[in-house]
Write a protein that binds this DNA or RNA. Structure first.
Lengths: 193, 193
DNA sequence: GTGTGCATGTAAGGAGTTACATGATTGC
DNA sequence: GCAATCATGTAACTCCTTACATGCACAC
């Protein structure tokens, strides 16, 4: 087993403040140790309001290390490179500063389904109903995913570590998804009468 | 006043099926006549679930014209180029086909504010409250925008033209925004006790 | 022994944004 | 006369995604 360390630190080579940096920093703080683990963690949590891909996470970790916001512990086996990361003091400070900052990129929402609904007047009544039904189904599945997968995981995390906000966000997401699903059900019934 | 027309039609040079095409087609169908008008229309409607920019709209109109899905009427004045567009028969057919199709890009939502909330455990209690308060404020402003600007416009459109779905979507958006704002208010009170 | 999951990265491409550049028209 | 709005477009850039490439470890 390899084991070298690295904590090279030019006083903190100012890194650009992009949300992806703080997703990574935040997930390290919640206990993720590898790039792979960061990505896995986002897939059951921040995916719904800030999706990521491995092709973002790995380069980001490299940047954060260069900026001194994370420390890397080399853990390679033979040919296979592997690293264990931890958030540094500077990293924790940077994370808190971002959490307190008020400048943020405008929320972005893109949904081809709702876009179709907006233009649905161009369809005959039967097809309008098919469309609404499909949207309602989709909303129901999303609500079920929040309720059955995301919320339980967040609650387990809260039990295990005392971290509250992942569960707060999960509940907000679950309730909102359920609300939308319910609204679309109502719309469906309205169209059938 | 210039006035030439163009309806060159190679049987419909298969255009790639991207939502932006149908935003443009759909807005032309709702009465927009210029690229500028399309953009203005999206800014008070689809902006919330499919934002656009002029740098997308103009090239898209050119592509749609080449594909024969819109017709262009040249309306230039002196040095200033201007065009009036209309959706063609083929365009209407393509719009309906898209509305009926079930393949869609996965909904994407990105919100730096909610991302902050997810990691808020890293903050001291006081700062947590400041963050929640800010999110609640923001949600309230968004809900007010839906209620005071977007819904009335959609209702006016419905009165004037009989088109129902813009208003359906506006109500859904307004109600959802109000729901989220209410939930965040509750969270704020919860934190204060 | 084979598939699944853990693990790390690069390269190419696509979609969308901001900035830049220009000009006409309308209302104050 | 000047500002705001209508109007059209291009160029550069950013961010993110998909596809590709590799290899270890473990359970069945």
């Amino acid at each position: 087993m390899g084991s070298t360390e690295s904590t090279a630190k030019p006083p903190s080579a100012a890194l650009k403040q992009r949300p992806i940096s703080f997703v990574v920093l935040g997930m390290l703080r919640l206990g993720a140790r590898s790039g792979y683990a960061v990505k896995k963690a986002t897939d059951v949590s921040t995916r719904f309001f800030w999706p990521t891909s491995l092709a973002q996470v790995y380069p980001e970790l490299a940047k954060l290390e260069r900026a001194g916001l994370v420390t890397r512990h080399d853990d390679s086996h033979g040919n296979r490179r592997r690293s264990r990361y931890e958030i540094s003091e500077d990293g924790t400070v940077a994370l808190r500063r971002w959490l307190r900052s008020t400048r943020e990129s405008p929320p972005q929402f893109r949904d081809e389904g709702i876009l179709r609904l907006y233009f649905a007047d161009a369809l005959p009544a039967g097809d309008q109903r098919v469309l609404v039904r499909r949207l309602r189904d989709r909303a129901g599945r999303l609500a079920a995913e929040w309720r059955d997968d995301i919320v339980p995981l967040a609650l387990a995390l809260e039990q295990a570590t005392g971290l509250r906000y992942p569960a707060v966000v999960a509940r907000l997401g679950a309730d909102t998804a359920a609300f939308v699903a319910e609204r679309l059900s109502e719309l469906e019934e309205e169209l059938d009468s």
